[in-house]
Amino acid sequence: MISTVPTDEFTLAALTLILLEGAGAEEGVDLNGDIADTPFADLGYESLALLETSSRIERKYGISLDDEALVAAETPRALIELVNRQLSEASARDKV
């Protein structure tokens, strides 16, 4: 029942879209700017916004993200890398 979007890679553009849908954008923050290494806290997202974001990523991509790894992913780049690791592990499992 989880609709899995076939994709090779989770991108900053995909993350930005999910952030906007799930939590909106803080006034004065340009999500289309160079935000890959800006901590989520500085972008105006607190833990609940990140919980909502990870929940949307999980159901859209059919993966499960580890809670501790999520907390450790403090920037968009770190979160994107975490998601992509999960995606490639899931795809490797599918091929076995």
Binding site: L20, G22, A23, G24, A25, E26, E27, G44, L48, E52
Partner: peptide, 8 residues
Amino acid sequence: LPSRLLPQ
């Protein structure tokens, strides 16, 4: 209101 407040 800012978009940040709308989903919540």
